[in-house]
Design a protein around this nucleic acid. Structure first.
Lengths: 129, 129
DNA sequence: ACTTGACTCTATAGTCACTATAGACTTTAT
DNA sequence: ATAAAGTCTATAGTGACTATAGAGTCAAGT
């Protein structure tokens, strides 16, 4: 299949697919006579793997490491585990931050009665303090 | 005060301060004879306002709008409110996403017994599916 | 045979909010 | 007088894409 079909099947944009290839995350595809990229089942699976990692917010550099580890099936998976745990702690941290943000934003919204002028606006006041 | 002092007082890096100025978020400072930027109380307040907005993840373009609104105190603050509410809904959306991420990552971590090889690794398996 | 339109190619620039660097200039301390 | 610290501008890099320009390829219809 050509890049357009792979793009539709996976939901990755064409540019993103080419970008992943350039970054060494997808194996180099064959080409047609006219220099079009040609993909098979394998590329599809590689791309789904990357997509799944990205949906977990795993940065591309770590995705790359995971792919390399996948290709060394006899090694210990301790580093895979470490990577995922690190990702988990990042997510936890970000969630705590967002909780605080949410509380403050809610407080701000509740301090605003829309009939106000900017001058009297509780939101601007709280941003100012 | 010079830029280094402003940087220390506010915790913004020197480059960030210059960046905010270039983007039109800070008013243009006076200069010494030797072309050094000179700041006073006003710049300090402007910068604190920006910092506070940024700590709420409000994008710079919206911070700029808020600053403009601040300078029109007689107008209605409805658009201030809309902006903050939009920000709140973004935060909510992101929190829902992170919750789902967290659940999946935890599931993955629990599927890994560190003695495994990569081949048998539950994490890699779940990323593959 | 020719043309149209859809698809693909590479290379490059833009996004956001900074951070980092190079090379020159100014000020402060010894 | 000199060294160190601070500041200046301009430029490039970050991450993970997205968007664009300009050229080439291919299949279908006239």
């Amino acid at each position: 299949m050509k890049i357009g079909e792979l793009s539709k099947t996976t939901g990755c944009s064409i540019q993103t697919i080419r970008y992943y290839e350039k970054e060494g995350l997808l194996s180099t595809p064959e080409r047609t006579e006219g220099n079009y990229r040609l993909y098979g089942e394998r590329a599809l699976k590689e791309l789904e793997f990357i997509k799944h990692c990205r949906s977990l917010d795993i940065p591309l550099i770590d995705v790359k490491r995971l792919i390399e580890l996948k290709n060394k099936p006899e090694e210990s998976c301790a580093s895979v585990n470490a990577l995922i745990e690190q990702q988990l702690s990042l997510v936890n941290k970000r969630m705590r931050e967002l909780k605080a943000l949410k509380a403050e934003l809610q407080q701000m919204v509740s301090s605003c009665t829309t009939e106000n002028t900017v001058e009297a606006c509780g939101i601007i006041k709280s941003l100012d303090s």
